[in-house]
Design a protein around this nucleic acid. Structure first.
Lengths: 107, 107
DNA sequence: ATTTAATATTGCAATATTACGATAATAATA
DNA sequence: TATTATTATCGTAATATTGCAATATTAAAT
């Protein structure tokens, strides 16, 4: 089949997996790091900086936008993409909680 | 084409993306949580617990193993999969560092 | 209103991922 | 050694992801 059976998992498990998926590509990591460094950016900067074609960067940006990690103006010239701090903190907490729940050992 | 151009990214960016990829499926989140709860496990428990076919669980376990997140005995009856605490801490730090580097705002 | 610069969308090809049935391999037990 | 229980591998199908060329859209500037 090839479809993830998300319905058999909890909301929390799906949310964390979905967030991880956004981070599961080095281009998107690089994009987030670059936006962070610049405080804001336009897409062409990213194309020059990262070395992927403009449509590809646009697609990656869209993946990041879809989970609400970017805010700002998204149309026309002189875009201002910024990281949504609230969502960022939420994700940080989500991952941190997950990493903290697993603490025991057996072997 | 469809191949990730990992060579244009830094080692750190690729490592984080690779780690995120392992967490980018709810079944693997569920597996890690379950192993954590049990301290140890055998694959059949996971098949019953999670509701995916045994070969599918085996594949997911293999993805987790590949980045060194599991240790223990992996052959024969009465397996003992455990989370590698050292690697776990390393990943926790990796994600935490990433989430901490991005702190500024613009809009 | 045209031009220009920047981003988005479409369409397509290549590869990766997810899932499972069938089967093989492994190791303990009878 | 044959059986049994458990996990791994193979083969295959369906879907998802990655990437880019071509094109469309958008909004500012001329």
């Amino acid at each position: 089949m090839g479809v993830s059976k998300s319905h058999i998992f909890s909301l929390q498990q799906n949310e964390l997996a979905q967030a991880a998926k956004v981070l599961a590509h080095p281009a998107r990591i690089a994009i987030l790091e670059y936006i962070s460094k610049q405080d804001s950016c336009i897409c062409t900067d990213l194309v020059d900086e990262i070395g992927l074609a403009q449509p590809t960067i646009s697609q990656h940006l869209n993946e990041i936008k879809k989970i609400g990690l970017l805010k700002g103006t998204f149309e026309g010239k002189n875009l201002c993409y910024c990281i949504d701090q609230e969502m960022w903190s939420q994700l940080k907490l989500l991952f941190n909680t997950f990493f903290s729940t697993i603490t025991k050992n057996c072997c």
